[in-house]
Design a protein around this nucleic acid. Sequence first.
DNA 1: GTGAAGATGAAGGCTGAA
DNA 2: TTCAGCCTTCATCTTCAC
Length: 453
Amino acid sequence: SGENASIWELADSIYASQTDKATADYHPTYGSSSTCEQWGEEERSCDSMDGGLSRSWGKRKGFDNSIRNKDSTIHRSASYMKRQRVCYARKSFNDDEETVPSNFWVPAKTMVGFGLPNNPITMSRKLPDAAIGPPYFYYENVALTPKGVWETISRFLYDIKPEFVDSKHFSAAARKRGYIHNLPIDNRFQLQPIPLLTIQEALPYTKKWWPSWDPRQKLNCIQTCTASAKLTERLRNILAASDGPPSYFDQQKVLEQCRKWNLVWVGRHKLAPLEPDEIEPLLGFPKYHTRGGGVSRTERLKALGNSFQVDTVAYHLSVLKIMFPNGLNVLSLFSGIGGAEVALHRLGIRLKNVVSIEKSEISRNILKNWWYETDQKGKLVEIADVEQLTNDKLATMMRTLGGFDLIIGGSPCNNLTGSNRVSRHGLEGTHSALFFDYFRILDAVFCIMSKQK
DNA sequence: GTGAAGATGAAGGCTGAA
DNA sequence: TTCAGCCTTCATCTTCAC
């Protein structure tokens, strides 16, 4: 700790102190003047809409202005990414060395973000001028990316530093994610009912069969793949082979698979993976949210594995309720099965107009079904391809709707997650490069709305 | 064509002992 | 302070049965 400590170190420290019921008297200021200057405040101006990148794209430190006039796909080129990396290296050694700790971008171990419902942290943060809303935006992705990814994301998103949160604080399952947003952080509140925080509470039928030698209280991160029936059968045979408790060796072998595949105890010697109906409430969705419409179990699991943890996101979005008593116009990018929409709805925030961009037809149908089932009064516009949302279309749409109050989404993590053994290529990866479309659209919205003021 | 099953590790944070 | 060992991770691809 100390003056040079990162906000997460401070948050960690405070959280630990509060957990220990010790007196904590920290009032750290996020982005104090020195830090803010170091990270640069960019002039918010919008001279033109060429490519919609005028607000900050061409003004990134060390960024080649010639790039901004090229096709939007240019940002995915290897040379561009190389330039970015060089830019970062230079900046980190020259500009920020003194004020930004070397581990600044490492998520703090407890991952409590700017506090939790039962342990709110009293702090204020000063956003860079260019980032101050409205409109408000909220960006999400996996916390444990290859090195350098969050620095890049943060730099594009107006130098706002990410808030890392593990959803194990909101759920019985872990989900380590980073969030960058320009929302206020005071007076957040939690969704009701308060979620059940242990496996045995969330899945009470497992309690009867849970052996004393399985110490798990929390599930690991819910992913897109699931264990096969044959694997659980093999584990059953191992366990059934011994009369009494299994040997220590067998216990460790079984526990390794339990952790790897998030297996739970459903009978004597019987383990099973989580079913979609069980995952939905763990992630804060209504039960059967992804059911129906001919969606297979595999597709449901994949869609759920790619979604938000609703309680976590809703806690961050809760500050919008008092700010927008009449509801919100939402631009939802990479919507998936509608984690953002469900979070806002559960918070009691009216959805006036939602423009949703989602590639998967299955996910679009799930969101559409939820929209009608919950009797939404607003209008839902679904778009399949993010690249089809050109800046001209965006401008037209915003004129019709009166602008957006919230731009929210988590871009694909396929090339960032540690689970990917084949193509963990960072933001250069085919899927994860779509982050730059998130930025392109966000920046265009900022520009259009600043013109309208 | 569709869905299930199985094979495919590296990266990076955390921890505790030296 | 260092380092070995431990742990976790919004996945991808091929094969095979139906």
